[in-house]
Design a binder for these strands. Sequence first.
DNA 1: AGCACA
Length: 232
Amino acid sequence: MLSGDIPPNQTIYVKNLNEKVKKDELKRSLYCLFSQYGRILDIIALKTPKLRGQAWVCFSEVTAASNAVRQMQNFPFYEKPMRIQYAKTKSDCIAKEEGSFVPREKKKKQEEKVEKKRFPEESKQSSVPNGTHGASNGGPTASFRPGSTSQEAAAPNDILFIENLPYETTGRMLEMLFEQYPGFKEVRLIDAKPGIAFVDFEDDIQSSMAMQALQGFKITPQNPMVINFAKK
DNA sequence: AGCACA
């Protein structure tokens, strides 16, 4: 089958990655690219001879992984089409979240269910490649409500579609925000439709970076930006 | 091509 008979998994296995790109940049880019599908708990990438050119992206939901497998299949990423499958085994970070993690020392096949209630400590500060110095104006990312139906993720595009802007937003204001990200080309406001804008980038990797960084940015306290890829 | 948890 398409996914090579591997059953769905919260973690996707990505291969055919460009081995020249440095590990941290790779993780950041993967994070930006895939976080549109859901919350990413961790990204594993190693540069050892056996493991270079591959990465594991762990999502908090299987549905996010499924969307990512389908939508980003063969996506050209650093000049190479990504090959995406479900991971074959459960990631440590997932096992930890559900309390079934067994340290690697014991190489046992410890797949038994641990009947446990939630941990009392709810500090879900998961390790995420914290690439971007994002929207640091108080409010973190917006909870995706206005506009788009967040279940149907738009395909990557070098054009971003911005919603929920205050009516008084000017092109210059948006330029100042977006031009700090590499690949920025231009901002386009629609006179007939206040509150939305399009922002063009050189490619969809760079647009993803900016989207991730500025998602939820508040120009006014009541206007967290909602950023999506523009429809093709 | 290659399925780990630096």
